[in-house]
Amino acid sequence: MRTLMKTVDLKKYYPIKGGVFQRTVGEIKAVDGVSLEIKEGECFGLVGESGCGKTTYGKTMIRLLKPTAGHIYFDVPEDIMEEIEKLENSNQNSKDLERLRNEYDLAKFGNRKLKPLRRKMQIVYQDPTASLNPRMLVKDIVGEPLKVQGLAKGEELKKRVMEILEKVGLTDRHLYRYPHEFSGGQRQRIAIARALVTNPKFVVLDEPTSAVDVSVRAKLLKLLESLQKELGLTYIFISHDLNTVECISHRVAVMYLGRIVEMGDTNEIFYNPLHPYTQALMSANPVPDPNVKMKRIILKGEVPSPINPPPGCRFNPRCEKAMDICRKTSPELVEVKKGHFVACHLVQ
């Protein structure tokens, strides 16, 4: 399968301003060097606790935020991607690489160059009540991306809005209504319709099911799965709900404090976790079966502040198996099995 989205060493720091002249006195390292490849047509799960940088990463990769450093390649033809990789590995700052990056690296793009790409990358936010404008009608909310992109107008626009609303399970009765007239599940459907109306290839799902109930969640997940098959979409599914991620994703990455600690096939991550943090996370996940009594790994302390993360491995202050080397050097993400990457000194 072709790589649709690739980020290389992506970083996003937020400055902390302070003092009389509002100088930058520190940095919040929200995303600190994340390299990922997302294949076309897959659903990639991204899990982690709140504040670990999941959402920031999702927003940065589709360039809603400007990255501090790193490269984003989206929908680059395969031969050019290979060339870029070759040049990157050769460690030379050649002119060719510079030229290719200017042409294909989203991190370097300005707004004008990004606009046509925006229709191919969309996002669905966590809370539909907050992400839908309460003063706009559903037809305007869903039609707005088409208007902004100049893809359709008039009758054509209305037809496309209707088409997509039908796909997400709403009818023409709903066109002239305001968001507050809908239930939580229906609002999320409107948000999904708005994301899909421009026929995107890649959709960031930022906790789309965490604001809704169990029975509504099941319906939304079914809808997302069927839409993916029907329209050939690629998802990155950001969530802290491990059970949901397990059901919907093909591959999963676990994030901790701005870095990926483990990545692999869903079954590998859930049944053979190698990183101590992933193990603790999996053991803390309540299983809906009273007969399963799990041995819990209780983590000590709290997630450290991303302003000055601990030296070495970022998990070392809470890790039971921390060694001397963990406090000094940061482990690299290495492939231990085919397709299973871990960043831990224990495994290496």
């Binding site: 606790e49 802290h240 803390a284 819990r296 209780i298």
Partner: peptide, 10 residues
């Protein structure tokens, strides 16, 4: 979060 939830439940 799940890990904090585990602590509170215990």
């Amino acid at each position: 979060d799940v890990t904090i939830q585990a602590v509170i439940l215990e």
